[in-house]
Structures are given as C-alpha cells and as structure tokens.
Amino acid sequence: MDDLRIVERDVDAKETKISAKNVQVYYGDNHAIKDVNVEIADKTVTAFIGPSGCGKSTFLRCINRMNDTIDVCRVEGDIAIDGEDIYDRKVDPVQLRAKVGMVFQKPNPFPKSIYDNIAYGPRIHGLAKNKADLDNIVEQSLRRGAIWDEVKDRLHEPGTGLSGGQQQRLCIARAVATEPEVLLMDEPCSALDPIATAQVEELIDELRQNYSVVIVTHSMQQAARVSQKTAFFHLGYLVEYGETGTIFTNPEDPRTESYITGRIG
C-alpha cells in the first residue's frame, strides 16, 4: 500500500451540506441500503468506497433522487440539503437535480455538438439571458471542466467524437454548467485509461473550491488521492465514516481494515 499518499488536507470544520438520517432503500423486496446516517460537508470531496454491490452507488443516486426513475425503488428516512428535506412532497426532483448535478460511470455525451452538450442544462433551466451570456457560460464550464483548450476550435462538432477521457470531462463540464451546489460522481474514472484518470482526478480536486463533491469509487487509491472524507459501505451498511487519512491508516472497524488490506472486496 505504498502508493497511498495521504497528503496533508485542510479538513477545517465546514458547514454540513447534506445530512442523511436513517436512510433505507428497497429494490422491490431487496433491502439495499440499511439505516445509513451520514453528514457530508460543503466544499469537500467525500469518497464512498466499498466492494461492488455494497450500496454506495444506490445511496449516491438517492441524493439527487435519480432512483425515482426506477419503478421498484423505494426510499425511506430523511436526506436534507441545507436543512431542507429533499424527499418532501413539495420538492420537485427537477429543481433538486439542477442543484445536485451528477456525472456517471460511463461518459454519456448527448448525440449533439460539444456546444449544445454544455448549453443543454443552462437552456432548460433558463440560466442565460442571451446568446452572449450562453456563450460565456459554455466557455466557463468547459474551462472548469479542464477541456476548453482541447475543444475550443471544434465546439460545433459532435461530442461523441471525443476520446473517452475528453468525453468524461465534457460530461463534468456539462454538469457544472447548471451551477449545481453539489456534484455527485458515480465511478467517473472506471471507464478511463490512467492518463485520462489523472486528468479527471486533478479536475475533481479543483472543483472542491466551489462544490461539495461526492465520489463513488472502486479504487481505494483514488479515494485516498482525491478525497478529504471517506465513507466505507459494506452489504448496505455504512460501516465507517471519517477523515480519509484516518480511514486508510487507522480504521476503527475490522471490516474496513479487511477491505483496505485487500481481504474482502
């Protein structure tokens, strides 16, 4: 485990962005998430790790109610963002998702031009007053997605023509363009090669300045590299949650230790 470079982190006490209490998720009869309590801080990268099927992605999808799109899925318990319960009947999932953006495992650019891919969110949410405004948003988003220099000369070519790593950064830029407060990332690097992964990881670290980032990852090294806080999920339970450094060097729970050292997973 030499490559676990636990860098110094500014883990100042920050205000809580997302708080989950007693969250249960069912897929039909299958109890997928069991009694999860967690508080996620603002302007922090929080990593969810755990063996596959442990429920980390499921929990992530609860935070912007993407699970609503699955018929058989049922969520119980409270998840609040800035103290507002997102499962309240009055909350519109569309409005919520504008606030809580999401990046997926596989890069999924729309079959449109690069420009339209980015402009899609601002257009539907009405963020731009005019064309110049929209151009500005697209440029800023692409810059924040760290891909501007690569695509600025071909904004009107299809987004599907980019390489995998570029596509994923495009998707991150797309998510950023709607000015979310929270950015959820579901294994964003699992389909990328090491170089593209490094670029995306660097980007994630930059994004921390403005957003609360939650990243699900398969790779412990990645969690160690990019996150300040880490949560370890196992069989639907949140086993351990704390400072990334602590989790990786001095886990409290024996299951966490087994996973970190590679005995389960």
């Binding site: 507002e84 009055k90 409005q95 948003i137 800023q140 810059r143 760290a146 220099d149 660097e202 930059e206």
Partner: peptide, 26 residues
C-alpha cells in the same frame, strides 16, 4: 490546469429553497 483562475466563475444563482417551486419550474 490554469483555466480556472483565468475565467471568472459565473455569479452563483441566488439561493433558493427547494421547498418552493420557482416560476420556471412551474
């Protein structure tokens, strides 16, 4: 990755409550 410092970050949207549906969402 100097892009970030170069571009000014667009003004964050005014804080809005999730519990009220804004006109556009309506």
């Amino acid at each position: 990755m100097t892009d970030l410092s170069a571009g000014g970050i667009p003004a964050a949207r005014p804080k809005s409550s999730l519990l009220t549906e804004d006109a556009r969402t309506k």
